[in-house]
């Protein structure tokens, strides 16, 4: 099941790359670098989420930081 999830995520990302390929070929190196870094971040997070769906995320971080404000309200 997890392998299928990783495959689906990879296929979507490759698809996004194929759609953007033409525009990217014409653009500067900086744009290409930024594009691939965002795609890499996407892939890493997506695969992590497929393998560990219960991974604590930014929501928990916000809860952790702002929990101490609650009693004042």
């Amino acid at each position: 099941m997890k392998v299928v999830g990783i495959l689906v995520v990879t296929v979507i990302l490759v698809f996004i790359f194929l759609i953007q390929r033409r525009g990217l070929a014409r653009s500067e190196k900086r744009v290409k670098r930024a594009f691939f870094s965002i795609m890499m971040v996407n892939w890493v997070f997506a695969v992590l989420l497929v393998i560990f769906p219960e991974m604590p995320g930014p929501g928990q971080m916000i809860d952790f930081i702002y929990k101490s404000f609650e009693p004042f309200w």
Binding site: I16, I19, Q20, S27, A34, F35, I38, M39, N42, F45
Partner: peptide, 10 residues
């Protein structure tokens, strides 16, 4: 424009 889809995925 190149970043619309990757950020949408994010």
């Amino acid at each position: 424009k190149p970043f619309v889809l990757p950020i949408g995925f994010l």
